[in-house]
């Protein structure tokens, strides 16, 4: 059997071109001097300069970052608890419902999650007067709810791949269960927690639909701002912003990959 046929190779080439050519074209056009996004008017970096002068963009980027940092931290704490509960604690009442609630937010269409959370916030405001206004707090709660599900799944799969006898050995040597969690379990799942934190951070930074529902007047996250601009068509300053995000994320992911590959080789 030939390991890779010509057909497979050409589909692979097409698939990766399909995934990356759009990103490449955004990057190229971000250096286009022309205001008409589709006509090449020479090389220029002026859109990057305008981006940095745009207070609206900077404000919403700052808000998005604040939310994403809070969400990632909360989601990692809650998600780790949930992942441990699912994989290490034996049966407890309501376990089925619990695991259902963990996995559902990941597959729920965003429009439904967003709408249902907004209606919850509105109803709570009527009943108990909280939340008084929608913005940072409500977006953070909404994002934490779906992001913690992803963290919980990552932690759960890491824990189930991990040998439980390590923890049993620690208890055999006299460690109390809670002590063992901090001495053994958490250090061992730390890489999974970091991965979960990064994923939660990205998911929060990326979200548009749920934020649009649960945000109030005056609180505009970066995706919301981009969406309101993009609705009107392709603009060069969004190209510049997109380029910055693409390059930032790609270099981060590639560095992480390279570091993990090197440490794997060293341990191998």
């Amino acid at each position: 059997m030939k390991p890779r046929s010509r057909f497979i190779l050409s589909v692979l080439a097409f698939g990766y071109a399909f995934l990356y050519l759009p990103l490449a074209s955004v990057i190229v056009y971000s250096f286009n001097d022309s205001r008409l996004a589709t006509v090449w008017g020479g090389f220029s970096t002026r859109w990057y300069g305008e981006l940095l002068d745009n207070d609206q963009v900077l404000d919403s980027a700052f808000l998005s970052l604040r939310i994403a940092l809070t969400v990632a931290t909360l989601a990692t704490i809650f998600g780790t608890m949930a992942g441990m509960a699912l994989s290490r604690f034996s049966r407890f009442r309501g376990r089925t419902l619990f695991s259902g609630m963990i996995t559902s937010p990941m597959v729920m269409p965003e429009v439904i999650t967003g709408l249902s959370l907004l209606l919850l916030f509105v109803s709570m405001q009527q009943l108990v007067g909280w939340p008084a206004q929608r913005g940072f707090g409500t977006i953070t709660i909404a994002h934490t709810t779906f992001a913690m599900a992803y963290v919980a799944i990552i932690i759960q799969s890491r824990l189930s791949a991990m040998d439980e006898s390590l923890e049993e050995a620690a208890m055999d040597l006299g460690g109390r269960p809670l002590r063992v969690v901090f001495d053994i379990t958490l250090p061992l799942i730390a890489p999974a927690m970091i991965a979960g934190w990064l994923l939660a951070f990205t998911l929060s930074l990326d979200d548009l639909v749920i934020s649009s529902f649960v945000s109030g007047p005056g609180a505009s996250t970066l995706p919301m701002l981009i969406f309101s601009k993009v609705k009107l068509g392709v603009t060069p300053d969004i190209n510049a912003l997109a380029t910055l995000i693409i390059l930032f994320v790609s270099s981060g992911v590639l560095i992480a990959w390279w570091v993990s590959r090197r440490s794997q080789r060293q341990s191998a």
């Binding site: 955004v26 990205t202 995000i245």
Partner: peptide, 18 residues
């Protein structure tokens, strides 16, 4: 996996330009 980490909105936007 990499595109996962890049904004969904911006990836759709990229197609508008194409």
């Amino acid at each position: 996996v990499l595109p996962f980490w890049i904004s969904f909105l911006l990836r759709v936007y990229a197609w508008m330009g194409l």
